[in-house]
């Protein structure tokens, strides 16, 4: 069947195939890890922010938790996830190492 195809069609197919593969390769090796890294960085910053706001959730007395409690209704889901993440986090290496997908 393939033999029935004209040469230029086969080249066309090959180029499509190659394009898909290269894009996949680019996405998997460069694009996705890069976005993932930025997103992880954003999450880390957010974690630090939540920690600054709700340190008392981990037993560190905070003079401002009275004020930050006003923000909780808007942060509820983030807060809940953050608390779980902080309790579960094993180490910074484990967290930073995630990007290599072992």
């Amino acid at each position: 069947m393939t033999a029935d195809l004209e040469l230029h069609e086969r080249i066309e197919r090959f180029r499509e195939w190659l394009h898909e593969w290269l894009h996949g390769l680019y996405h998997g090796m460069i694009e996705h890890p890069a976005f993932e890294k930025i997103e992880k960085e954003a999450e880390d910053t957010e974690d630090a922010l939540l920690f600054a706001m709700f340190a008392d959730a981990f037993g560190i007395p905070s003079p401002v938790s009275y004020y930050t409690s006003e923000l909780l209704p808007y942060l509820a889901e983030d807060f809940e996830k953050w608390e779980r993440r902080m309790w579960d986090r094993e180490s910074m290496i484990e967290r930073k190492g995630q990007q290599y997908h072992f």
């Binding site: 709700f54 938790s65 808007y74 509820a76």
Partner: peptide, 26 residues
């Protein structure tokens, strides 16, 4: 405020934090 913003599923978790914040010395 929370009643309006937050889904009931996690209200309890958040409630704990809010209560805690209002019991600090500050």
């Amino acid at each position: 405020e929370m009643g309006e913003q937050v889904s009931p599923a996690i209200v309890n978790e958040i409630n704990r934090q809010i209560e805690l914040a209002h019991r600090t010395p500050g």
